[in-house]
Write a protein that binds this DNA or RNA. Structure first.
Lengths: 137, 137
DNA sequence: TGCACGATCTCCAGTAGCTGGAGATACGGA
DNA sequence: TCCGTATCTCCAGCTACTGGAGATCGTGCA
């Protein structure tokens, strides 16, 4: 059996985060030692890896909760899991698009500074005057 | 003079958010009517637009605070403003890169689902088994 | 002048997803 | 048995808001 510290080192998930996942119901309440310390087996380690992987992909706690329910019902159709992945993909793509437009704007702002005093600084002027922007954001 | 509602409509910043900015010191404490309601002039409107623009670009409250200090000292050198913009650009690019790697992973996961039951679902399997991933994340 | 109704006030709590500290207890090797 | 590290629970705080409760203000209309 692993202690919470062992589990943390093996999965790369911090100890308070593990307890937080338990509290949020992503992990079942852990078995305890005689002295009330959490002990984990292989199943729990796998589930935590699953959670970490999903979090790394940007899924919310709620989405992960759904996936966990699904994964414990192997005979269910997997449409819902596909839908969650597809929605996350859409969301990631939306974020990328938004960030790319910010990137263009920042490049323009950051490379246009002509003066060397704040009063001529393009960064400051561009922020103060939205008219200087290209495109919408 | 504008009421807080007028200011909100003209800048697109919600009323509680305006009060929050005041509380955080990005906006000076507003003038008040006889009945203690906030009243705003042109200067405050411009400053709020500046803040909104910077927030839309993803700058933190702290970064904006620095920029506001700078913009009220027109004779200072603008290196610091340039630095803030450049740092934000780096951070945005980092986020884009990370999201793009997530995107690739999600595309792979979401398009590979062969079966129609959860037990064969690639989405679930990929999350459970990091070995199925390409690249690092 | 009185009233009705929407706008605004302050204060507080909640959101997501952790993160860290305080003070008490458990574990494991010498 | 002792010591040092790990873990326990509880609670508060982080960012950047957002929303509700209950009270007060402002304004148009009769």
């Amino acid at each position: 059996m692993l202690t919470i510290g062992d589990l943390s080192r093996r999965t790369g998930v911090k100890i308070p985060t593990i307890r937080y996942y338990e509290q949020r119901g992503l992990l079942a309440p852990a078995e305890r030692s005689d002295g009330n310390q959490r002990r984990y087996g292989k199943r729990e380690r796998e589930r935590l890896s699953f959670i970490k992987h999903a979090r790394d992909l940007g899924l919310t706690i709620e989405a992960i909760r759904e996936l966990i329910v699904l994964s414990s019902h192997p005979e269910w159709p997997c449409e819902q899991a596909d839908r969650i992945a597809a929605e996350q993909l859409l969301s990631v793509r939306g974020k990328i698009a938004k960030l790319q437009s910010l990137e263009r704007e920042l490049v323009r702002i950051a490379t246009h500074c002509g003066g060397d005093q704040v009063k001529d600084c393009y960064v400051i002027r561009a922020l103060a005057d939205h008219e200087l922007c290209e495109g919408e954001h």
